[in-house]
Structures are given as C-alpha cells and as structure tokens.
Design a binder for these strands. Structure first.
Length: 922
RNA sequence: ACGACCGUAGCUCAGUUGGUUAGAGCACUACCUUGACAUGGUAGGGGUCGGUGGUUCGAAUCCACUCGGUCGUACCA
C-alpha cells in the first residue's frame, strides 16, 4: 500500500470495479430479502448534504445486510418533481427572455427532458462518488414508460371505485404558477397587516353595519354579512339587507354561529368564492359563489369596471381610497395575520374556485392508520407516529390536478359537451363508451401532482402491475429511510396507495432522520448561501470556487455580497479534501435518533484522521506479516500471547455491540464503538503489545500467533467498518485478506463478522487490565514528575498478592517495553524500598526510586492530590453506607459493591499515606 | 393555542429499563520527532447535566411546574 493515504486515488478505482463486476445486484437469490427504495431525488439540480446524509445511512444498511448474506436490493431512481423542475427550466428560459408559452407545450417538455438528463446525470454521479451501492441496472424515473402506465392504471381504478372525482371547489391557487396546489404546499407565516373597519350601509337607509376585514378588495365578491345568532347588537338586523358600497349589490344579513362575537365588530363580510370559511358558510346559506379574480389574481369583469384588470393589491389600495372618500372607512388597525404562500413560488396563495381532480382519501386513510397502530409499520423513532396519526385523522381530500405541463397527463377525455371519460388510453375510452370516431375527444390539459406517482414508488419500481418475481420478493420493502418533512407528502400517501394496490404495507419500518444544518445550526438553503456540496467536502474546494458556487445564479442576487463575506470568513482557507469515507463516517457518527444534525467540519477532520490512522496501522501490520508465516496453515503451531487473547476477546464484544447498534439504527453508537476499538484498543494497546513479541527473542510459534492475530483482527475490523467506510476498507482488505487466509474478490461480499462468545477469555481481559494499570501508573509518575520519556526507569514492587506475582511473571516483557523500564525488582520482607514515587495496582505498590529524578515537593503534591480524591470518595461512600435506608432497601449486590469499593479506596489511601510520610521524612 | 423534540465540558455529541469518581471527539496545557502514523504519541486541566420543587435509600435518567430553543399542526374575518 502507498505510504500516504490518498482517498481520491482509491475511491474511483474501487467504485468502477464494484459496479463493473455487478456486486450491487442482489446476490444469494435464495436468501432472505432485504430491500430499500431510495427516496427519489428531484431532478432539479444536484444532491445536497441532506441527501448525502440519507444516502450514507441507506448505503450503510445495504452494505451491512449484503454482507450478512441477505438477498439485498437497493432500488435507485429519480423523481420528475413537477412544479419544481418546470420552474427550474422556466427560469433558464427566462434568462434568454423566453417563456414556456413561446415554445409551446411540446417543445417545452422536450427542454425539460433535456434538463432531466443533465440533472439526473449529476445526481447519479454524486451518488457514485458517495460510494452508494444501489443496483443501477434497475434505475427508474417517475415518468418512465412503465411507471407512467402504472400511474394511469391507479388513476383509472380509483376513478372506477369513485375514489377519484372531479369537482368545482375552492382550491389553493398559485397566481404566479397558475396552478392549484395542495394544502401541504401552502406555507402560512405571520406577517404584518391591517384590520380595516368598513361601513356597510343598510339598504333601508336606517344606518350601517361595520365589518372588519384583512382583505378589503374581496368586498367586491361579498354575498352577505354574517353575525352571531345570539348577538343582541345585531339580532334585529338579521334578514335585512345592506347595499354593498362601490358595487351597489344588495346582500342579506345572515346569522351563523361561526361568527365570533368577540372579534372585530362581530360582523363578518362573506365572500364565498375567496375564503375557505366563507365558502362553507356560503354553502350553508345557499349564497352565490361570485368569483372576482382572474388566474393572475387581478380583478375580473364581474367587478365594477373601475377595478377591472387591477392586481388584487392595487385594487385593495384603490378600494381603501374610495371608501375613505365616501367616509365609509371607520378605522384601520394594525393586525398580524397568517399569510399563505406557495412553497415554490412564495406568491400569496388565493382561495380560487376551479374545476379540479380529487382523491377521496377517507377510505384509504383508515387501513393506513391501522397498519401503524397494529405494528405492521413501525416508526423509528416511535414518536413520529403521533405526528402521523394527527394528520391522518384529519386528512382532507387530496387535490391531485395541477395546471402545469411537466408531469403525468391526467387520463381523462372530454367530448364537445364537456362530458368526461376516464380510461387508460383514448382508444380504451372510445371502445368502452362506444364513441364513434367522429366524436371529438380532447384530453384533459392538466397533469397530476408529483406526489401521486411517488406514492406508488415502492411497487411501480418493481414493475407493478406486472407480477414480476422482484415484486414478489422485494415487496414489502424492509425499511424506508426518510426525513420527517415529507411524512405527509410522501410517507402517508405511500402507505395508503401501497395498501390499496398491493394489499401490503410498502415498508415494515420507517427510519426518520433529522435535518442536516450548518455549523451554526441554520437550515441549509441556497438563499441563505450556506449550502455545501458533499462532493466539495470529499475533494476539497478553493475559497474562490466556493464563493462563486454559492453566489451563482441566485434568485435574490442582492444577498450575494453578504453570502460572499460570510463564506470568506468561515472558510478562509477553503475546504480541505476529506475523502468519502471520512464524510460518511461523520454522517454515521452524527446519526443519533431523529434529531437534527449540525454538520461540523471539525468532526470530519477527526474522522479523516481516523482513516489515516487505520491506513497506517494497516501498513504496520503488513510490514510485519507480509513475507512471514501468519499461521494460515491450520496445522502450524501457534502460541497466543496474553495480548492476542485479550484483543480477540474484546473483538467479540465489539462485534456484538456493532450488530446491536446497526439493528437499532444507532449508526452513531456503531461508529463510536468501531472508532474506539480500532484506535484506543487495537492501535494504542494491541499494536504496542505486539511489538515486543515480534521484535524480541520469542518462539516462532509465539511470533506466528501474534502475526496471525494482528492480521486476523485487522481483517475483521475492516469488514466491521466496511458498511460505513467502503473505500479504505476495500483497499486495505485486498492486501490484508490473503495474509488472513481469505480468498474473496471483494470485501463487499464477505460475511459480516459475528461475535463468538466462546472466544471471550475473561481471564485475559482481567490480566491485561492489570498490565495496563501498571503501565499507566508508571507513565503518570513519569509525566507528572517530568521524567524524560526516553529514560528507562528501575522499579521495585511491594505487597504482591499471589495473583500479582503470577501476572508479573507472565508479563514482564510488556511492562518493560511499554512503561520503558530498566528493571523490575520485587522487594522481599527484609528489603526496604529506596525513596520512591508510588503507583498503586490494586494492593501492589509500584515504586520508582526518586533519588536524583524527582523533587520531594512535586511528589508530595502529587500524592496529596491523589489522596484528596480518595478521601472525597471515601467520605461519600461512607455516608451512603451509613444511611440505614440505603443498606436496608438497595439491592444487596449494589450494597456489596459499594462496600468493596470503600475497602479498596481505604487500602489505597492507607498506602498513599504511608508513602507520604516516608517522602516527607527524606 | 395545541403537539413533538431538544437544553450535559469552550464547540459537536453519547449517556439503553434510576445504582462505578457523568463519557468521547475537537479545542486547550505540558512533555515527546521512539522504527505504522506529528492527519501522531504520553500525561493533564475543564461540566453542581437549563432552573425550581417532588418521588426514591439513591435522579443527568422518573413526575410536576418553569425558562430558553427548534419544528409541526390549527387558527377570528
């Protein structure tokens, strides 16, 4: 292996090999299936950090299960993302001074397909750089022919069951995009506005009413004034009429208990065609639905001529002026209100009366709720179930038609009288309804909501409605990995559609991860200019390029200079290249349950260092094993040292922990367990303990045993780490595996390590703990007494138990080497120790003669610090054990443990006290 | 307004049914270029676990209230 770890050079090499050899396809056809459908990214550009995080989690799960031997499928694909993608391409056209209407529908859609190819290409390239291992041969797009057929099939079936219907209703209308949007696509935020108090004169001239409104311009469409039936102020007026100012229409005063007596004046103007509540009231009272707006939200010709053609906000100004002139504006009060805006266009959404297609969701929602209630589908973490139920219990019919061009055209045709026919094709419609060829049919111009096709994703990607073997095998999928932000948009609808059309849940578990935020905890967004491209963390990026990238093609160019400044400050030196493995490890280590993650570059740096550490450890192992006998031949004689038996024991425990954590979706704990074992145990202790055996005069069997352990434990570590860090582990494994007696072509398809309890040697663990305590004790004195690390020290031992004596004899070479000792001498009863600093190993004292090495005061200070700690503990434990309640009520084992601890501390304290006095007397 | 989640070292985060002296990484201090690694080694400093009250022999952990933050849902024209 190369001396320096260079992620870039190994990543592309291995990815191509894996893909070319078909390792990503499901292996082991007879094994249990494991499948994940990728949440299809929108073809609106490129993947962001959220995707990278999500994809890391999925790939880790997929690689883990693939290695476990499951027949594993990761299904890739992308989403056409109707409105979002259409907007991207429209913006591109706008830059050339063109609109989609200049091109016409067909040409415009061709343009989007071109863009789809480009964006889709970027996305799949990014996924490859991330090391993702989906079965690329099965890649799908929501507007593929097959998926489009399935969409029609679903639409027709739902229509035939009366679960899809068409109706004129009030919808959320986006006046910029000229389309209806669903409730979910409307984001309401608090904005400052006013509450206008307007006088409406009674038609009989006996006075006036005052209505309060936040939207004066809608008065042009007013059909009534409503008061509460119990409102004594107005009761006598109910049934009378007022004459609508500026318009002259006579409209009734009605009573409805929807009206809040306390709010405003207690009189509400009712505009059934422009407000959802008024719409309901209008239906209750049979009021006319008068639409006064155009699709652009300008005033239409139902209004007095003066206002026609004015934008709604212009009209508002004019109406206010006109009412003031007529002295009908009684008051204007500042008022905060919730303003609904489109999540894509950010335009103020208008309730608008149009013909739209709807899915009647009530009957679909019931089984979907039950599936989660009865445990067929499980949310991880569980608390998201509340959110799910809350929405599902109040679910509204789903408006699925969109007045845009990019998407699945609604499979409905109209004849000249406007009669609608639904079918898979025009031909089918004609046959079914026996329409002769001279009947002119026009297909509905609208397309379906993007989420309609993504709701079918788990089974249409497996070629439903065809009954393919893949559908049979991989559906229901094992787990859905997704963000909480699309539980309603997507997850809930997949459950409803999955149950309806396959009779199965679409997935058994839903792993809900958090949002990726920047280092300051801010949500990453293009407009904030704090987005990071995962590829830039992998390859690194110069400051100038990063600035350019962040400020290019902004929707609000005025923000550019601010973003540039912030970027220059935060990344003064650009971003260094961390490599894919380090980035993946960072994501894994931050993937705690459900909480948002703040992406911290410092952590990425730490994990890059971890990769480097692993790289160098591998080089060291190879140095000591390549060309040597590593005990591959089962007949060769092997002698295992304490360190060998210890590291193998610890390895079993780590294997068990990692499996447990992966199975519980605790990637952070799995990553930490592996980090800690690899660095703190394997590198820091085991490699050091192996050195004396390999370099000193040991038996060939002992050396062989250590070489075998070195290489086999490393080989196992590589397999354990592979789901998280695929590249470095493959590169290292290729070199290490043969020395460990492994023959496979790739680590990807090797079995995932499993713990073997019979290999856990508790004795070895205890004994090695003793060795470590001994060594650490000496190192502490060395450091605190300022003794040069290079100076070999003589030590004397006192107060050895039989166990100490045995372990000492076993492990002298470790102690000498790792504590850098010149000699170890056990003091007999007759001998007295010279003046020494002391470290305690249980009851045994390790004495380091201080003559000429240490100063008295420093040692006294060190001892009193140690003694202070012990005294505190003894006091605390003494109090606890003197508490009658504790002794009486706590479990016996707990009490015994505390007693034991107290005794231990007491002995240690006594030893230190003796030592303290001795030193003092010098 | 309701609901969910969060608040632990300067920073980013662990802490599984209450029971070692509350842990890790980064940052910090000191010493060390020792033959895998200075992207390193060894040792060290640093937290009364947001606050108050309660339950308990025992609370970072359970309960109540409270403060602060994030998000979601529903909102009165």
């Amino acid at each position: 292996m190369e001396k320096h770890f260079d992620p870039n050079s190994i990543e592309t090499k291995w990815y191509q090999t894996w893909e070319n050899k078909g390792y990503f396809k499901p292996q082991n056809p007879d094994a249990a299936p494991y499948s994940i459908m990728i949440p299809p990214p929108n073809v609106t550009g490129s993947l962001h950090m959220g995707h990278a995080f999500q994809d890391t989690i999925m790939d880790t799960l997929i690689r883990y299960h693939r290695m476990k031997g499951d027949s594993t499928l990761w299904q890739p694909g992308t989403d056409h993302a109707g409105i979002a993608t259409q907007m991207v391409v429209e913006r591109q056209l706008a830059a050339q001074g063109l609109s989609r209407h200049d091109l016409g529908r067909e040409k415009f859609i061709d343009k989007i397909w071109e863009w789809k190819e480009e964006s889709g290409g970027t996305i799949t390239k990014q996924l490859r750089r991330m090391g993702a291992s989906p079965d690329w041969s099965r890649e799908r797009f929501t507007m593929d022919e097959g998926l489009s057929e399935a969409v029609k099939e679903v639409f027709v079936k739902l229509y035939e069951e009366d679960l899809i219907y068409r109706g004129k209703r009030l919808v959320n209308w986006d006046p910029v995009l000229h389309t209806a949007v669903s409730d979910l696509e409307v984001i309401s935020t608090e904005e400052q506005g006013s509450l206008w108090h307007m006088r409406y004169p009674l038609s009989d001239g006996s006075g006036h009413l005052v209505v309060a409104t936040t939207r004066p311009e809608t008065m042009l469409g007013d059909q009534a004034v409503a008061v509460h039936p119990d409102d004594e102020r107005y009761q006598h007026l109910v049934g009378k009429t007022i004459t609508l100012p500026l318009v002259g229409r006579e409209i009734p005063i009605i009573a409805d208990d929807y009206v809040d007596l306390e709010f405003g004046t207690g009189c509400v103007k009712i505009t059934p065609a422009h407000d959802f509540n008024d719409y309901e009231m209008g239906k209750r009272h049979n009021l006319p639905m008068l639409n006064i707006l155009t699709v652009d939200a300008a005033i239409n010709d139902e209004a007095p001529e003066k206002y026609q053609g004015l934008d709604r906000f212009e009209a508002r100004k004019q109406i206010i002026v006109d009412l003031e002139a007529l002295e009908l504006m009684e008051d204007i009060k500042p008022h905060t209100l919730m303003v609904p805006r489109g999540d894509r266009s950010h335009a103020v959404i208008e309730p608008f009366l149009t013909d739209q297609w709807y899915v009647a969701v009530e009957s679909l929602a019931k089984p979907a709720i039950d599936a989660v209630k009865n445990g067929d589908i499980e949310f991880v973490p569980k608390n998201w179930e509340n959110t799910y139920f809350e929405w599902m219990n109040n679910i509204q019919d789903w408006c699925i038609s969109r007045q845009i061009w990019w998407g699945h055209r609604i499979p409905a045709w109209y004849d000249e009288s406007g009669k609608v026919y639904v079918g898979r094709t025009e031909l089918e419609v004609r046959e079914k309804h026996q329409l002769s060829s001279d009947v002119v049919l026009n297909q509905d111009e609208d397309v379906l909501d993007t989420w309609f096709s993504s709701a079918l994703w788990t089974f249409t990607t497996l070629d439903w409605p065809e009954k393919t073997p893949e559908l049979e095998k991989f559906h229901p999928t094992s787990v859905l990995v997704t963000g909480f932000d699309i539980i309603f948009f997507w997850v809930a609808r997949m459950i409803m559609m999955g149950l309806k059309f396959t009779g199965e849940v679409p997935f058994k578990q839903i792993y809900v991860h958090g949002l990726v935020k920047d280092g300051e905890g801010q949500k990453m967004s293009k407009s904030k200019g704090n987005v990071l491209d995962p590829i830039d963390l992998i390859d690194g990026i110069e400051l100038e390029d990063l600035v350019k990238k962040r400020t290019y093609g902004m929707m609000q160019p005025e923000k550019a200079s601010k973003i540039e400044k912030a970027t220059r400050k935060q990344f003064a030196d650009g971003i260094p290249a961390f490599g894919t493995d380090a980035i993946r490890f960072t994501f894994a280590s931050l993937a705690s349950t459900g909480r948002d993650i703040q992406f911290d570059l410092n952590r990425a740096e730490g994990y890059r260092n971890f990769c480097n550490k692993l790289w160098n450890a591998t080089r060291y192992v190879l140095m000591n094993t390549e060309g040597y006998d590593t005990g591959v031949d089962p007949k060769s004689e092997i002698e295992l040292s304490l360190a060998d038996r210890w590291i193998v024991s610890r390895l079993q425990q780590v294997e068990a922990d990692v499996a447990k954590h992966f199975d519980a979706y605790r990637f952070d704990l799995a990553a930490n367990a592996l980090y800690e074992f690899t660095w703190n145990e394997y590198c820091d202790w085991y490699l050091e303990l192996a050195k004396p055996i390999l370099t000193q005069d040991s038996s060939e069997a002992a050396k062989r045993g250590t070489r075998k352990t070195l290489v086999r434990v490393l080989e196992t570590i590589l397999r354990l780490l592979h789901p998280i860090t695929p590249f470095i582990t493959e590169e290292a494994w290729q070199a290490v595996a043969p020395l460990a007696g492994k023959q496979g072509d790739t680590i990807m398809l090797e079995p995932y390590p499993e713990a073997d309890d019979s290999k856990v040697d508790q004795e070895a663990i205890s004994e090695l703990e003793w060795v470590k305590t001994f060594i650490i004790g000496v190192r502490k004195i060395r450091s605190e007494m300022d003794i040069a690390p290079s100076k070999a020290l003589p030590v004397f031992l006192e107060g050895l138990t039989a166990q100490d004596t045995q372990w000492l004899n076993n492990n002298k070479r470790y102690l000498l080497a790792l504590a850098k000792l010149a000699s170890i001498e056990v003091l007999g009863a007759a001998n007295t120790a010279p003046e020494s600093a002391v470290a305690l190993v249980g009851e045994m004292k390790v004495l380091i003669p201080i003559a000429g090495l240490i100063d008295k005061e420093a040692e006294l200070a060190r001892l009193s610090k140690e003694m202070g700690k012990l005294q505190n503990e003894i006091k605390r434990l003494g109090g606890k054990l003197n508490n009658a309640g504790f002794v009486a009520k706590a479990p016996e084992a707990v009490v015994a443990k505390e007693r034991e601890k107290l005794a231990g501390y007491q002995t240690a304290l006594n030893n230190l006290e003796t030592q303290y006095e001795k030193i003092q007397q010098i």
